[in-house]
């Protein structure tokens, strides 16, 4: 289904480390790397273990995001509430506000995974008109 009902809390791994050390990390099987900043990496899904060539790296389970998958047919609808233009190449990582809420987006050929701080997820659901929001 290309229109999600709601955002679900995501389990991932977050690594803040020396940029050079992050460059050396390879994507695990079925996993995806989202480079949020030169020294900040989000790995989906959560890793059992990870080797980072930085003894001071902060490697933490990441429970702060909720995520939902939007099929390709939904991209125009998301773009219509974004004041910046989505990247055109695939795969691609992008971050910025969507409907006024900060998000991280992981694009591939089939669509886009949208990550939102879980503490704001209900706002994004409402603003995107997901699911049945009646109390």
């Amino acid at each position: 289904m290309s229109v999600p009902e709601r955002f679900e809390r995501l389990e991932a791994t977050r690594i803040v480390a020396d940029p050079g050390a992050l460059d050396g990390i390879e994507s695990p099987d079925d996993g995806r790397l989202m480079r949020l900043a030169p020294d900040d990496l989000l790995v989906l899904p959560a890793l059992a273990r990870v080797d980072v060539a930085d003894r001071y790296a902060i490697i933490e389970p990441e429970a702060g995001f909720s995520a939902a998958w939007f099929g390709r047919s939904q991209l125009a609808r998301l773009q219509a509430v974004s004041a910046w233009e989505f990247p055109r190449h695939r795969p691609a990582v992008a971050q910025g506000h969507l409907a006024g809420i900060p998000v991280k987006m992981l694009f591939d050929e089939g669509g886009v995974r949208v990550l939102v701080p879980a503490v704001l997820a209900h706002h994004l659901e409402e603003r995107l008109g997901l699911g049945d929001r009646r109390e």
């Binding site: 977050r14 480390a17 001071y56 902060i58 389970p61 702060g64 503490v119």
Partner: peptide, 12 residues
């Protein structure tokens, strides 16, 4: 300074 900083406010 050589430090890494990670905000956990929303994650924890």
């Amino acid at each position: 300074v050589d430090v890494r900083i990670l905000d956990r406010t929303a994650s924890w």
